[in-house]
């Protein structure tokens, strides 16, 4: 728990700062750990720091998945509309996955907008077998 708190404090203070400034923060951080007698927590703190960094990085990501390269431009307008609808400001990363058959999927950390043909076909199949 304590290592998590240290990691959080270090992350938010060093976030969006230059490399030179980050070095300075890190030196001060080590001195603080020595003074408090918590230097042994350093490996755990670094692990927690890595986890926080990955989590935060995910927040900033929007994955846009299409079934083929040639459909990238087809859904450009849709992406703009959904970004506005969900109030997202992150950068879009386009991926190609032929398993979705057709259509598109937009995925953020906590929302998925699924307009893929795979989903539609699975729903149609389930309707038939009922």
């Amino acid at each position: 728990m304590l290592s998590e708190k240290y990691a959080q404090a270090l992350y938010y203070i060093a976030k969006d700062k230059s490399e030179k400034e980050q070095e300075g923060f890190f030196d001060n951080f080590i001195k603080l750990l020595k003074r408090n007698g918590h230097l042994s927590l350093l490996p755990k703190i670094l692990k927690n720091l890595n986890e926080i960094s990955l989590k935060e990085h995910k927040k900033d990501k929007i994955d846009f998945i299409v079934s083929d390269e040639k459909f990238k431009d087809k859904y450009k307008e849709k992406i703009k509309d959904y970004k506005k609808y969900l109030n997202l400001k992150q950068e879009v990363q386009t991926k190609v996955d032929d398993a979705i058959v057709g259509g598109f999927i937009i995925r953020t950390k906590d929302t998925i907008i699924d307009g893929s043909y795979r989903r539609g076909l699975v729903n149609l199949y389930n309707k038939f077998i009922k």
């Binding site: 906590d110 998925i112 307009g115 043909y117 539609g120 149609l124």
Partner: peptide
């Protein structure tokens, strides 16, 4: 089956997700 396939148009669904 033919009628269902003719009517087929995949809808877009918005869902909340986690990992």
């Amino acid at each position: 089956l033919k009628k269902e396939i003719e009517k087929f148009s995949p809808k877009t669904e918005v869902e909340r997700i986690g990992t």
